[in-house]
Design a protein around this nucleic acid. Structure first.
Length: 813
RNA sequence: GCCGGGGUGGCGGAAUUGGUAGACGCGCCGGAUUCAAAAUCCGGUUUCUUCGGAAGUGCGAGUUCGAUUCUCGCCCUCGGCACCA
C-alpha cells in the first residue's frame, strides 16, 4: 500500500493527459457535441477562489459529459482589455499590455496546476489584434448597415484631471484620484442599436428553459416593454412637447408637467432665467446613475411656461425636475399626483394640486392611489375602466392627430465608446469633408500601440499620440483624424464563445466550425452578469446570425449562475484582506482537495462560505478513499469478478446502495447540477463500502463493483487521485476516457419498504411493509402499531391518509 | 428607490412534486490506539424536558390531514441598476 501523495500523483496524471492530448477536440460526426464554457477571466493577477469555483463547475460538467460519450469542447481564454490594467499602469509605471500578459501567464500556470480539462490549443486573449480585428470588422459592417450611430451622451468628467471617469472611479460624487467634484459632460459617442432587437431579446426568453427564471425575469424587467400613449402638449412660447404615459386613464388628474434638466424646453427657459440656469447647473452635478436618481431628493423648479391640457384646455405649469430621465421615453412626463407616488411627493413639496380621478381603494390625502379602477371626474370617460379609457382616448387622440399608441422599452441603445486606452480601437476616421468614415476592411486591424507610458491623470496615451491618430481620409485622402476612443470591453466578451470554435482562423470572424459547436450547451458564470454581459452577448449572437455567421438564435442553451465566495460573511477581496490564495492550498493539499471542497461547501448558485476546516475535511475524505481502495486492491489480485444471483440480505443492501448512489450522482451532476449533494452521496457510499467486509466471492464482486463505480463517479471532482486508483484497480485506459457507470435497475428492486406512521402529523411509528402491499393492508398495519394505538386511544379516527412508499397519517380528534 | 436572490443546529449545508426537519461534512464531547501527542478508528451531538413528551426552518398571519416548501404582510442581508468585470 502506498500513501496518498497528491503532489506526485497530480503531476503524473497531468502528464498523462498532456501526452494523450485528452482534451483537444475537433468536430466529430460520429459523436454528439457538447460545448461547456465558463465565463473567461479578466487577468487581474493570480487566481482567486471565485475563479476556482467557476472553473471547477464547468470542469465537473465537461468531464462528466466526456464520460457520457460526448465530444466535449471546453476552452479557456482571457478577457484581457479593461480598466484595472490602466490603474496598474499608473501605479507601477508599467504598460497595461505588459502587466496583462504577465498576469495571463501566471493564471494559465495555475489553471494547469488545477488539472482543468481545457483544450489549451484554443486559448485566446481579446487584447490581441488577431482577435479584435474581427470586432472592428463587424463594427464597420454594422456601421454601413445603419446599426451603428453616433449621438451625444453623458460621461463623468473630472475637471481637474481633465479626464472621463468610470462610475467606479466616482466616489461620493468626487473623482477618485483628484478628489474634484465630478460633473456631467455631454460628448459624442458611438451606439449599437440593441433596441432594434428589443422585441426578439424579450420574446426569445420564453423559449429558453435552460436559463434560471430569476435571470429571465431580470432581463425582461430590464428590457421593460410597456404599451402606452405618446401625447403632444402645446406649450406657449415653445411649441409641442411630447410625453409618454402608460396611464392615459389618469389624464384628467394632470396638474403639472415635468421635463428633464437636459430637455430643450428647460434649456430655452433657462436662457432667460438665471435662477433656473443655476438650478440646471446644479442638476448637472448630480450623479446620473439610476440608483442615485431614484434615491436622491426630488427637486424641481417652475420654468415659467405653461402647457395646455389636451382634453380640458386648462393651463398646467411646466416644471423641470431632477428625477425625469432624458434617456427614457421623451424626456418629459405628465404628472398625476393623485395616482403616482413620485408625482405625489413632488406635488406636496411644491404645493401643486392633487386630484383623484380613479375610483380605487386608498386615500389621496395620505398617498397616491396607484391601483387601477374606474375613472372619476373625467368628462366623457367617467365610469370607464382602464382598458376602455385606454382605447377610447387613443382613438380620440389618433383622430385629432396629437397622440398615438406607442410601445416603449426601458432598454437603451448600447453606448460602446470609452475614452480609455486599454481597449479595442474604434475603427473610424473623422474627415472635415466626409465626416465619420469607417476604416476600410483592408486597413484592419487598427492596432492599439502597446508600448505606452501613462501619466498621473490616467488620461488615454493614444489621445496624445499624433502618430496614432493622424491619418488620411479613406474616401478623399485628405488629412484626417482617427477615433481615439476604444470599445466597451463588453464588446469583446459578447462573441468570444463563438471565436473559441475557430480561434486561429484568419479568413474571417468565424469559420464553418462555428456552427458545428454552437450554441454553447452549458454556460457558467457569476450572477453579477445576469443582465449586462448576458444581454449583450445574446444581442451580438443575433447580429452574428443576421450577418450569416452563425445559424442559431441564442448563444447559451443552459445557464448556471454561480454565487460568490465569501469569508466571514463578506465577499473575498483584496481591500477587505480576507482572501484565500488557492495556490497555498494546492501546495498544501493538492488540486483535488481544493476542487472537491469548492464543490462540496455549497450548491453552485448560492454564495459559498469559505472554511479552512472544511478543506481539511475534503482532504481527509480523499485520504480515506485512497486508503480503502488501495487496501481492497491488496486483498485481491483478480480483475474480473463473477457474481451469482443468490445474494444474501446484506449483499443485496450493499448493491442497492451502490446503484442508488450511481442514480443519485448521475442525476445530481447531469440534471440538478447540485454537486454538493453528489459528493455527499459518494461519501455515504464510501462509508457503507468501508463497513462492508464480506470476503465471499459475491462479496468481493460487490466490493469491486462498488469501488470501481465510486472511482469513476469521483473522477470529475478529483481526477488525479482517481486516475491513480483506476490504474491500481487494473485498468489500463485513461479514466477520463472511461464510460460513466450505469445503474442496474434490478439492484434497485426492494422487497420491503419502510413507511412512516403519523398521528395528526406527528411521527409515532415506523413500519416495514411489503413493496406490493395494498393501501388497505398498510392502513390496517399502521393502526395496530403499539405507539399509534397509544395516541389514537379514546379518540375518533376522522381520516387515514396513505401516501404510497412514504407515510400514513391518522387524523384523530 | 427599482429589479432579482438568500435567511434551517455551534458552523457549511440536506430535505428533488406539500409528506420522517437536520443527510453529508466541519466543530465539539466521550472512547479505542499511543510512553505521550499528532494522525487514524469507533460512538454521541437541534433545544427544552417532569424522560411521557413538547417546541423548532428570520418575524407575523393564512391555506392544508400535513408547510423549510404554497399565499399575504413585514424584517435583515447579498447581487444588479447601463463607463468595474
Amino acid at each position: 500500500m502506498t500513501t496518498y501523495n497528491p503532489q506526485e500523483i497530480e503531476q503524473h496524471a497531468q502528464k498523462l493527459w498532456e501526452e494523450h492530448q485528452s482534451f483537444e477536440v475537433k468536430p466529430d460526426k460520429n459523436k454528439e457535441k457538447y460545448y461547456c464554457l465558463s465565463m473567461f477571466p479578466y487577468p487581474s493577477g493570480k487566481l482567486h477562489m471565485g475563479h476556482v469555483r467557476n472553473y471547477t463547475l464547468s470542469e465537473i460538467i465537461a468531464r462528466y459529459y466526456k464520460m457520457q460519450g460526448r465530444n466535449v469542447l471546453h476552452p479557456i481564454g482571457y478577457d484581457a482589455f479593461g480598466l484595472p490594467a490602466e490603474n496598474a499602469a499608473i501605479k507601477n509605471k508599467t504598460a497595461p499590455a505588459e502587466w496583462t500578459y504577465a498576469n495571463m501567464d501566471e493564471m494559465s500556470a495555475q489553471l494547469k496546476r488545477l488539472g482543468f480539462a481545457y483544450d489549451w490549443s484554443r486559448e485566446l486573449a481579446t487584447c490581441k489584434p488577431d482577435y479584435y480585428r474581427w470586432e472592428q470588422w463587424m463594427f464597420v459592417k454594422l456601421f454601413k448597415q445603419g446599426l451603428v450611430y453616433r449621438k451625444d451622451a453623458v460621461v463623468n468628467w473630472d475637471p481637474v484631471d481633465q479626464t472621463v471617469l468610470a462610475n467606479e472611479q466616482v466616489i461620493d460624487g468626487k473623482g477618485w484620484r483628484s478628489g474634484a467634484e465630478v460633473i456631467r459632460k455631454t460628448i459624442p459617442q458611438w451606439f449599437l442599436k440593441i433596441t432594434d432587437y428589443a422585441e426578439e431579446l424579450l420574446s426569445s426568453l420564453d423559449n429558453m428553459p435552460g436559463w434560471p427564471d430569476s435571470v429571465k425575469t431580470m432581463q425582461r424587467n430590464w428590457i421593460g416593454k410597456s404599451k402606452g400613449l405618446e401625447l403632444d402638449f402645446q406649450v406657449e412660447d415653445f411649441g409641442k412637447v411630447s410625453i409618454y404615459t402608460t396611464r392615459p386613464d389618469t389624464l384628467y388628474g394632470v396638474s403639472y408637467m415635468a421635463v428633464a434638466p437636459e430637455h430643450p424646453l428647460a434649456l430655452q427657459a433657462a436662457a432667460a432665467d438665471t435662477e433656473l440656469a443655476a438650478f440646471l447647473k446644479q442638476c448637472g452635478k448630480e450623479q446620473s446613475n439610476e440608483a442615485a436618481m431614484a434615491t436622491m431628493e426630488k427637486k424641481g423648479m417652475y420654468t415659467g411656461m405653461d402647457a395646455t391640457h389636451p382634453l380640458t384646455g386648462e393651463k398646467v405649469p411646466v416644471w423641470v425636475a431632477n428625477f425625469v430621465l432624458m434617456t427614457y421615453g421623451t424626456g418629459a412626463v405628465m404628472a398625476v399626483p393623485g395616482h403616482d407616488q413620485r408625482d405625489y411627493e413632488f406635488a406636496q413639496k411644491y404645493d401643486l394640486p392633487i386630484t383623484q380621478v380613479i375610483d380605487a381603494e386608498g386615500d389621496v390625502s395620505a398617498a397616491a392611489i396607484t391601483e387601477k379602477g374606474h375613472l372619476l371626474n373625467s368628462g366623457d370617460y367617467t365610469g370607464m375602466n382602464f382598458g376602455q379609457a385606454f382605447v377610447a382616448m387613443s382613438e380620440h387622440f389618433k383622430a385629432t392627430g396629437i397622440g398615438r399608441v406607442q410601445v416603449n422599452y426601458r432598454l437603451r441603445d448600447w453606448g460602446v465608446s470609452r475614452q480609455r486606452y486599454w481597449g479595442c480601437p474604434i475603427p473610424i476616421i473623422y474627415c472635415d469633408d466626409c465626416g465619420a468614415v469607417a476604416v476600410p476592411e483592408e486597413q484592419l486591424p487598427v492596432t492599439l500601440p502597446e508600448d505606452v507610458v501613462f501619466d498621473e491623470t490616467g488620461g488615454s496615451p493614444i489621445k496624445k499620440m499624433p502618430e496614432f491618430y493622424e491619418t488620411v481620409c479613406p474616401k478623399c485622402a485628405k488629412p484626417a483624424t482617427r477615433e481615439t476612443d476604444t470599445f466597451d470591453t463588453f464588446m469583446e466578451s459578447s462573441w468570444y464563445y463563438a471565436r473559441y470554435t475557430c480561434p486561429h482562423y484568419s479568413g474571417g470572424m468565424l469559420s464553418d466550425e462555428a456552427d458545428q459547436w454552437l450554441p454553447v450547451d452549458q454556460y457558467i458564470g457569476g450572477i453579477e452578469h445576469a443582465i449586462l454581459h448576458l444581454l449583450y452577448a445574446r444581442f451580438y449572437h443575433k447580429v452574428l446570425r443576421d450577418q450569416g455567421l452563425v445559424n442559431s438564435d441564442e448563444p447559451f442553451v443552459k445557464l448556471l449562475t454561480q454565487g460568490m465566495v465569501l469569508k466571514d460573511g463578506a465577499k473575498m477581496s483584496k481591500s477587505k484582506g480576507n482572501t484565500v490564495d488557492p495556490q497555498c492550498l494546492i501546495d498544501q493539499y493538492g488540486a483535488d482537495t481544493v476542487r472537491l471542497f469548492s464543490m462540496f461547501a455549497a450548491p453552485p448558485e448560492q454564495s459559498l462560505e469559505w472554511s479552512d476546516e472544511g478543506v481539511e475535511g475534503a482532504a481527509r475524505y480523499l485520504n480515506r478513499v485512497w486508503f480503502q481502495v488501495t487496501s481492497f486492491v491488496e486483498v485481491t489480485t483478480e480483475k474480473e469478478f463473477g457474481m451469482t444471483s443468490d445474494l444474501d440480505k446484506s449483499q443485496k443492501d450493499m448493491r442497492l446502495k451502490i446503484h442508488q448512489t450511481i442514480a443519485k450522482v448521475t442525476e445530481d451532476i447531469g440534471e440538478r447540477q447540485t454537486f454538493n449533494t453528489a459528493i455527499a452521496a459518494m461519501m455515504e457510499l464510501t462509508n457503507a463500502l468501508s463497513k462492508f467486509s464480506d470476503e465471499s466471492d459475491n462479496g468481493m464482486a460487490i466490493r469491486h463493483e462498488g469501488w470501481h463505480s465510486l472511482v469513476k463517479m469521483l473522477s470529475p471532482f478529483a481526477p488525479h487521485m482517481t486516475q491513480a486508483l483506476w490504474s491500481q484497480l487494473g485498468e489500463s485506459e485513461l479514466l477520463c476516457e472511461a464510460s460513466w457507470p450505469e445503474v442496474d435497475q434490478s439492484a434497485l428492486v426492494q422487497d420491503e419498504i419502510e413507511m412512516v406512521v403519523q398521528v395528526n402529523g406527528k411521527l409515532r411509528a415506523k413500519l416495514a411493509v411489503a413493496a406490493d402491499a395494498s393501501k388497505e393492508d398498510i392502513e390496517a398495519l399502521a393502526l395496530i402499531e403499539e405507539n399509534v394505538m397509544k395516541f389514537t386511544e379514546g379518540k375518533v379516527i376522522r381520516k387515514v391518509i396513505v401516501v404510497p412508499n412514504r407515510l400514513v397519517n391518522v387524523v384523530v380528534s
